[in-house]
């Protein structure tokens, strides 16, 4: 079974996003970019399935600017077999919406015919948590979101997935092909070794454009403004528990 894993190039999760003073967006010029942490977990899970003999090939796909090549190389160095880059933006500040991404992925999937798609549950930049569900809808496939475990039953064409839901965990069986979106708890992604990073440079990477695939990436949501969240007033350091209790009772009046 072939597994397809979409990966996104986003601001590194350790970097605090800076809002541009003109309200036009978050400043991404000269900011460290990395593979979206949830997508790294998705790649790791696909590799583990291949190592268990349950997957034959892992194809990673990224959509965005040309520089997204670097996150595809990261995924190849971890163990993916080949990569597809769909160029849909010429400026790093142009975030392609989940609906357009889902439409592009649908086209790629029609060509590649994977038996399973493993995606991250959300990208840490737009925090949408929507692409996997939208893709599943467009394909008419089953979906298993926020997965923390994934067991494939190749004989019966089903996957058993434990999902992280409000209040605890839910286990479901989904018919394959399916879209699984992964939560943080699924696994600990491996680091790419230097020899594997070198090898990844020779793995195939195909380039396409959104136009080649016939997908319109015009945003449905026009961004009016991007603002800093309201700043919190500076707090104070108290010296004792009794002072804290006194402040909470009499000053903040919250207890």
């Amino acid at each position: 079974m072939k597994i397809l894993v979409p990966v996104k190039r986003v601001i590194d999760y350790n970097v605090k996003a800076r809002v541009k003073s003109d309200g036009s967006g978050v400043d991404l010029a000269n900011v460290k970019m990395s593979i979206n942490p949830f997508d790294e977990i998705a790649v790791e899970e696909a590799i583990r399935l291949k190592e268990k003999g349950q997957a034959s090939e892992i194809v990673v796909v990224s959509i965005g600017v040309k520089q997204a090549q670097d996150v595809l190389r990261t995924a190849l160095a971890m163990g993916a077999d080949r990569a597809i880059l769909v160029i849909a933006a010429d400026d790093v500040h142009q975030d392609i919406e989940p609906l357009a991404v889902a439409k592009i992925l649908k086209k790629v999937i029609e060509d590649e015919a994977p038996g399973l798609v493993i995606a991250g549950k959300q990208a840490i930049d737009n925090d949408m948590n929507a692409t996997g569900q939208m893709l599943s809808a467009l394909l008419g496939w089953s979906q298993a979101t926020f997965a923390s475990t994934l067991d494939i039953d190749n004989d019966n064409d089903i996957a058993r997935v434990t999902r992280e839901i409000d209040g605890g965990l839910q286990t479901i069986d989904v018919k394959l092909p399916s879209i699984v979106t992964v939560d943080l708890r699924m696994n600990e992604p491996r680091f790419a070794s230097l020899p594997n990073i070198m090898k990844a440079k020779r793995k195939p990477m195909e380039e396409k454009t959104a136009a080649d695939l016939g997908v319109d990436v015009t945003p449905r949501l026009s961004i009016i403004t991007t603002a800093e969240p309201p700043a919190r007033e500076a707090g104070i350091i108290v010296n004792s528990v009794s002072e804290l209790v006194e402040k909470l009772k009499n000053e903040a009046e919250v207890i």
Binding site: I11, A17, I124, D127, M128, R220, E228, P229
Partner: peptide
């Protein structure tokens, strides 16, 4: 499109939502 995690409704078609782990508020 879906509009996730709306924190303010400005009008019938304009909404505010946090992005970048709440480090920015986008009006769409």
């Amino acid at each position: 499109m879906v509009i996730s995690d709306v924190i303010q409704i400005d009008s019938a078609d304009t909404f505010q939502r946090p992005i970048y782990a709440g480090n920015a508020i986008q009006t769409v």
